[in-house]
């Protein structure tokens, strides 16, 4: 055994396979994410959640916007849609309403979902649209080179705030709750088991669900702020995070160096969009109401 070669000095069964592979387009690997980026880690959790939830994979669709996390749709071996910047949620809304048997997962970044797409987020939450929104929050616009996001904490240096950010941030969990989300949780890429469990939970549940995942961005966020590499961020998450299930979201704001409150904050039953629509139409129209059947046919 020689530690300078890349031979693996342990016995591996011939049929051993990476459990993520059935869920990914392996012909597209390697992916574009940087060394130490956490998006791939969240994808591992998502694949475990798909496996553990026993979801019918033909009926799960992933919709992404634009940005580093927006690329998840392209790697997921599911019906997957890489849409326009900020518009994953309204696309997903149309997809879900046209085919309600689909479990529609929106997988995108903080800039995409909360700056350019912020309006869509609050309205989908208000409607309790049956979407599972996973936001990988790396606190920066990474794809475009590290510009300030609505989540970039105060005083951080970014490409567009070279002297430090002076704007307050959004507290995403609090925003989601106030807008009406049925389920709100926050984890970091350190919390892989908990994150996978949360994802599994939302895959089995109706209504607008929101999971925020803090994830390292060593290249564009940490480097400018002398915060080390991806592993340093992971150690930081481990050291600073505190699980507080049911914590009032208003008390869970994030800062650059402070405590990171994680956990499941909100889990409440509300009728979803289609249930409300059906109830109202049945009330008003009675037998005249026709259940939506929007699918068009091909010939023959």
């Amino acid at each position: 055994m020689n530690e300078t070669t890349l031979e693996i000095p342990c016995e591996i069964p011939e049929d051993a396979r990476n459990p993520v592979e059935p869920f990914l387009r392996m012909d597209r690997m390697p992916h574009i994410w940087c060394a130490g980026c956490g998006i791939g880690t969240t994808v591992n959790c998502f694949t475990r959640a798909l496996l553990d939830s026993k979801a019918n994979l033909d009926k799960v669709a992933v919709v992404s916007g634009i940005g580093c996390t927006g690329r998840v749709a392209g790697y997921a071996r599911l019906d997957s849609f890489h849409t326009t910047h900020g518009r994953a949620i309204p696309f997903a809304t149309g997809l879900k309403l046209a085919n309600p048997e689909l479990q529609v997962v929106v997988y995108s970044g903080d800039g995409d979902l909360f700056a350019i797409g912020g309006n869509h987020f609050i309205h989908a939450a208000r409607r309790n649209m049956d979407l599972k929104v996973i936001c990988v929050n790396n606190m920066i616009y990474a794809m475009t080179g590290g510009q300030t996001a609505p989540t970039t904490p105060g005083t951080a240096i970014t490409a567009t705030a070279p002297y430090g950010v002076s704007e307050p941030t959004f507290n995403l969990a609090s925003l989601a709750e106030a807008a009406g989300a049925s389920y709100v949780a926050r984890w970091t890429t350190y919390h892989v088991k908990q994150l996978a469990r949360s994802m599994e939970e939302v895959l089995k549940r109706k209504g607008f669900c929101f999971i925020e995942v803090l994830s390292p961005c060593p290249t564009l966020y940490q480097r400018r702020n002398k915060m080390g590499d991806g592993l340093d961020a992971m150690k930081d998450y481990k050291a600073k995070s505190k699980v507080r299930n049911g914590a009032p979201t208003g008390e869970c704001a994030l800062s650059m160096t402070g405590e990171i409150v994680v956990g499941k904050f909100v889990d409440r039953e509300r009728p979803d969009y289609l249930e409300l629509l059906r109830a109202q139409m049945t009330e008003t129209l009675g037998d005249r109401y026709a259940e939506p059947e929007v699918s068009c046919c091909s010939e023959g």
Binding site: E3, L6, P9, N18, E21, W33, C37, I39
Partner: peptide, 26 residues
């Protein structure tokens, strides 16, 4: 590389963490 392969429990936590799908345990 596995410096202490005999200690591996096969928990696949390495696989859960690996952002590059480059390692897994069993």
């Amino acid at each position: 590389y596995p410096v202490a392969a005999e200690k591996c429990s096969g928990c696949d936590l390495c696989g859960m963490y690996c952002p590059d799908f480059a390692i897994f345990g069993g």
